[in-house]
Computed example of a mutant assay.
Amino acid sequence: MNIRGSLIITGIVIVAMAVASVWAFFQPGPHEVPVHWGLSGEPDRYASRLNALVSLPLVALAISAILAIAGKVDPRRANIERSGPAYRIAWLGTLGMLAIGHGVIVATALGQDVPVARIIGAAVGVLLVALGDVIGKSKSNFTVGVRTPWTLSSERSWNKTNRAGGRLFVAIGILGAVSAFLAPPWVTLSIFLGGSIAIAGFSLVYSWIVWREERRGTPG
Score class of each variant (00 low, 15 high):
42 E>C: 04
42 E>H: 04
43 P>E: 01
43 P>M: 13
43 P>I: 08
43 P>F: 03
44 D>N: 13
44 D>S: 07
44 D>E: 13
45 R>I: 06
45 R>D: 07
46 Y>G: 15
46 Y>I: 07
46 Y>K: 10
46 Y>S: 12
46 Y>W: 15
46 Y>C: 08
47 A>N: 08
47 A>S: 09
48 S>P: 05
48 S>K: 03
48 S>E: 06
48 S>H: 09
49 R>E: 09
50 L>D: 07
50 L>M: 13
50 L>C: 05
51 N>E: 08
51 N>T: 11
52 A>L: 05
52 A>P: 07
52 A>E: 00
53 L>C: 11
53 L>E: 12
53 L>N: 11
54 V>M: 12
54 V>K: 14
54 V>H: 14
54 V>A: 09
54 V>D: 02
55 S>G: 03
55 S>N: 09
56 L>D: 02
56 L>A: 13
56 L>K: 07
56 L>F: 09
57 P>N: 02
57 P>M: 07
57 P>H: 09
57 P>T: 00
58 L>K: 06
58 L>G: 12
58 L>F: 15
58 L>C: 09
59 V>W: 04
59 V>A: 12
59 V>H: 04
60 A>Q: 05
61 L>I: 01
61 L>V: 04
62 A>E: 11
62 A>W: 03
62 A>F: 07
62 A>Y: 04
63 I>S: 11
64 S>H: 10
64 S>L: 10
64 S>N: 12
65 A>I: 06
65 A>S: 10
65 A>N: 05
66 I>N: 00
66 I>H: 10
66 I>F: 14
67 L>P: 05
67 L>N: 02
67 L>G: 00
67 L>E: 00
68 A>S: 10
68 A>D: 06
68 A>F: 14
69 I>V: 13
69 I>S: 01
69 I>Q: 07
69 I>T: 02
69 I>K: 07
70 A>E: 04
70 A>R: 01
70 A>M: 14
70 A>G: 00
70 A>I: 00
71 G>S: 01
71 G>R: 05
71 G>H: 00
72 K>I: 00
72 K>D: 00
72 K>R: 15
74 D>F: 11
74 D>V: 08
74 D>L: 14
74 D>W: 14
74 D>Y: 05
74 D>E: 03
75 P>E: 15
75 P>W: 02
76 R>W: 11
76 R>P: 09
77 R>M: 15
78 A>Y: 06
78 A>S: 15
78 A>V: 05
78 A>M: 12
79 N>M: 05
79 N>P: 14
79 N>I: 05
79 N>T: 14
80 I>W: 11
81 E>L: 13
81 E>P: 00
81 E>V: 06
82 R>L: 13
82 R>W: 04
82 R>N: 12
82 R>F: 05
82 R>H: 08
82 R>P: 09
83 S>P: 12
83 S>C: 11
83 S>E: 08
84 G>T: 13
84 G>E: 13
84 G>F: 11
84 G>Q: 12
85 P>L: 09
85 P>S: 06
85 P>N: 12
86 A>W: 02
86 A>N: 04
86 A>E: 04
